[in-house]
Design a protein around this nucleic acid. Structure first.
Lengths: 176, 176
DNA sequence: ACCGAATGAGACGTCAACGTCTCATTCGGT
DNA sequence: ACCGAATGAGACGTTGACGTCTCATTCGGT
């Protein structure tokens, strides 16, 4: 049910509760029985998303191995939840910047740590801050998810496009 | 007036007409005298944004010189309109993918052409499609604008963070 | 086959934002 | 100083989504 809601809201973040219910194949009443209002639904989606993302980070085991490889694994593991991430990132953007959710802070910390580790081990450049790299990762995943939804990028290119752009950039390097 | 509306809506895309009016320092009535409804306001903002972006592309003269330098100039010229871009990109995302505005198609074509030119001249790698690079550019600009608004990245790092990440990627290259 | 729980469909009241309208005030040109 | 146009403030009705409620139906366990 959460997955159905996520799939719809990722495409149309302003979707009605009625539309969400129909998309999930249930009645509005039932939807309200599970989530007391739209706010509760979004909160549940956020919690659900955080679980997914943490699980993806765990599966990718980003704390081990070369940072570059760890990042590749992370992107691969995050792909199934990319649309949800796109939704939650823009949704979070609406919040008055006052208090950031503790769950997000923890997730951000883990991902940032990956980039910092890469810098310390000499794999990543040090002139781009880990925080920015983390945000850029989220942004690229969201952007790519949207672009795939629009059909402008093939779904099976998802991982490659993000990984290569984020790691190697657009410039054609000499070593290649 | 459009700039004031853009500045507010970029931060809070769900802002009320009332809030927009107050942010622009005018009354609701006056706002409605200029734009017949929220839809018209967004359309006007879109037209305004397109003008700004086209102007930025013109100033950057992306058709001349090495593609990498052209991209740097483009990012620099787009910085003032970055928040507006972030708003319009997410707003466009809400549209049922049916018809893409003709103005956006033209802008996309120009930017894509820059990346394609870079590929043909051997400056950019050819395994990342121009369309994806274009979308990634938009996405990174929007993401960076948000991150700057949140205070997680310093405003004066805007150009550098985007340019370096997009061109060179996160990996520390041997040649450096 | 039975029975309680859960569901779907729909009716209903509430509320916030919208868009229109009026009217007093202010602004700018002559 | 005059006058018309534009503005700000606010009242008003409309609309769409929300959240609650009821009731007939269906589902699932025993």
């Amino acid at each position: 049910m959460l997955r159905a809601a996520a799939a719809l809201l990722a495409r149309k973040s302003t979707a009605t509760m009625d539309e969400v219910a129909r998309a999930a194949g249930i009645g509005r009443a039932t939807l309200h029985r599970h989530f007391a209002g739209r706010e509760a639904l979004v909160k549940a989606l956020e919690a659900f998303g955080l679980e997914e993302f943490e699980a993806a980070v765990d599966r990718a085991a980003i704390e081990s191995g070369p940072a570059g490889d760890a990042l590749r694994r992370l992107i691969a593991e995050m792909e199934p939840a990319a649309e949800l991430l796109a939704f939650l990132v823009t949704e979070n953007q609406l919040f008055e910047g006052d208090q950031v959710d503790e769950g997000w802070a923890r997730l951000d910390a883990r991902v940032s740590a990956l980039f910092r580790r890469g810098q310390e081990q000499g794999d990543f450049r040090i002139d781009l801050s880990p925080i920015w790299l983390t945000e850029a990762l989220y942004g690229l995943i969201g952007t790519c998810a949207w672009t795939v939804m629009d059909g402008r990028v093939a779904k099976n290119e998802f991982q490659y496009m993000i990984t290569e752009l984020l790691l190697g950039g657009a410039r054609r390097s000499v070593e290649k």
